[in-house]
Amino acid sequence: MLIKPVEEMLLRNADHYLIPADIVANVQTDNNLYHAFLVLTKIKYSRIPVLDHAGHFEGLVSLPLITEKMLGFDQLNTDILMQCRVSEVMDTDIKTVQSVGDVEETLHLMVDNPFVPVVDSANMFEGIITRREFMKSFNFLTHEIGRQYDMIEKDFSNSSIAK
Rank of each mutant, 00 (worst) to 15 (best):
Q28A: 02
N139M: 11
M124D: 09
R147S: 11
D52V: 10
D120K: 04
H16T: 05
M124N: 13
V86G: 07
M110S: 03
I48V: 15
L65E: 13
E144Y: 05
M90N: 01
V89N: 02
E7H: 00
V6D: 00
L76F: 06
L76V: 13
I161R: 07
N123Q: 13
K136S: 09
L18W: 06
E133K: 15
G55Q: 02
M90L: 15
E58F: 08
F73H: 04
I66A: 03
L63I: 15
V116M: 03
G101R: 11
K154Y: 13
I80S: 14
V118A: 06
Y45G: 00
P114Y: 09
P5N: 01
T92K: 15
D52C: 10
T92I: 14
M135E: 10
K136P: 00
K42M: 06
V50P: 02
E58R: 15
N77Q: 13
H16N: 11
Y17D: 05
V39L: 04
T78E: 11
I48T: 06
T96D: 02
S137F: 01
Y45K: 12
G101K: 13
L11R: 13
R131Y: 01
D22P: 05
I23F: 04
M82E: 11
F73V: 02
S159P: 10
H53A: 11
D150N: 09
D30Y: 12
A122I: 05
M124F: 15
T130V: 09
L18Y: 05
N139H: 11
R85H: 10
K95E: 14
I48L: 10
M110H: 03
V100T: 15
A122L: 13
N31H: 14
R12M: 14
Y34P: 00
E68M: 07
L71P: 01
S159N: 09
M135F: 08
G59V: 13
T130E: 06
V103K: 04
N26K: 12
V50R: 05
S62N: 06
H108N: 07
N139G: 09
E7Y: 00
F57G: 07
Y45W: 08
Y34V: 04
E153D: 12
A162H: 12
F37I: 00
I48N: 04
V50C: 07
N77E: 14
G59D: 08
E105F: 04
E133G: 13
D102C: 02
V27Y: 04
N26T: 13
T142F: 07
